[in-house]
């Protein structure tokens, strides 16, 4: 709660204490030259109140679920966010799942082959993953897989010929599935492929090195030796004992990786015309759309809190010692 207040306060202060002129940005240079237009605009959005009053007004409206009206889109921020946030969550969650699977495989192999050639190769690959400029990679993927090879859809969440599914979760793939529409599901999933693939590369780099270290620590542990001494095969030992033992540190870093994914989505969404939070934040920031920016800040704060909550709950699920404490 305190964090949310802090987040709104920071965003509010930042956007107001700086020299940018939101009115000119919102109305365009021509209209801003007309005093009457400016006056009407200012009155409509209460922009002539002192700043602390503006902030309190904002908080008051917030309590009623009213995030104000976006200066950039002209629609209520709350409804803009209601479509943007699920779009971003959909890519981010898919990317986390994909990168977790790949990174776990790579990290585990590297740990088992510690200091051998395979380990070094995995290390270099993951460092390169961390070094790729996401926006450039997105462009390259778009150019290659969509424009030249034509094997993946290029932009948006859905082909123009299809209508979006009835909104239940806001995640198109899930909603199509709930709706029993397999054509829609396949199309939505295909649109996810490129953005998710691009985002995953960075996260794979981030997670692999870390998972390798965690697995190494566990491989050294007495309970893994005990599991081997029981005659369990390598597969059982790795899945049943090693990964379970490494799951807590891995969970922590996955939480962090999710945050970095949100950063990545801003750039990736702009390339793939994905109507998500990143696109919205970009639009709001470059138009100095104060309610829009505040809304983004708030949502980011909420996502951060929810994420921490989920991580805490999963901690309890994975570690009985936490659960009982």
């Amino acid at each position: 709660m305190l964090l949310l207040l802090g987040v709104t306060l920071v965003t509010f202060t930042l956007t107001n204490l700086v020299p940018g002129d939101p009115i000119a940005a919102a109305l365009g240079e021509g209209a801003a030259a007309n005093p009457a237009t400016v006056q009407a605009y200012v009155e409509r959005y209460g922009l002539d109140d002192p700043l602390p009053v503006q902030y309190l007004t904002y908080l008051g409206n917030l309590a009623h679920g009213d995030l104000g009206r976006s200066l950039a889109t002209g629609r209520p921020v709350a409804s803009d966010l209601a479509t943007a946030v699920p779009a971003t969550i959909e890519i981010a969650v898919c990317a986390v799942v994909v990168s977790l699977l790949v990174a776990t495989a790579l990290g585990t192999v590297a740990a088992h082959r510690r200091n051998l050639v395979t380990d070094q190769v995995v290390r270099v690959v993951s460092l390169i993953g961390l070094s790729l400029p996401t926006f450039w990679l997105a462009l390259v993927a778009y150019d290659l897989f969509f424009r030249r090879l034509g094997i993946a859809p290029g932009s948006g969440r859905l082909s123009p010929s299809l209508t979006p599914p009835p909104t239940i979760t806001g995640l198109y793939t899930v909603d199509f599935m709930l709706d029993g529409d397999s054509v829609g599901f396949v199309d939505a999933a295909a649109h996810l492929a490129l953005p998710v693939g691009v985002l995953s590369l960075f996260t794979i780099g981030l997670l692999t090195r870390f998972i390798r270290t965690s697995v190494l620590e566990v491989l050294d542990s007495e309970y893994v030796r005990a599991a081997r001494a029981k005659g369990l095969g390598p597969g059982r030992v790795v899945v049943g004992y090693v990964l379970r033992g490494a799951s807590l540190p891995i969970l922590t870093v996955v939480g962090i990786a999710f945050g970095s994914l949100l950063s990545g989505t801003v750039l990736v969404e702009s390339v793939f015309a994905w109507p998500g939070l990143g696109t919205y934040a970009y639009q709001a920031a470059s138009n100095l759309d104060l309610p829009g920016i505040m809304g983004v800040g708030l949502v980011v704060g909420v996502i951060y809190l929810v994420l921490n909550l989920i991580v805490d709950v999963l901690y309890g699920v994975l570690d009985p010692r936490v659960r009982l404490a």
Binding site: T15, V266, L267, Y282, V296
Partner: peptide
């Protein structure tokens, strides 16, 4: 708590 790019974007834009 802010994703870096989003915060940097807001600061840079302002």
């Amino acid at each position: 708590a802010f994703p870096t790019v989003i915060l940097a974007m807001v600061v840079a834009a302002s």
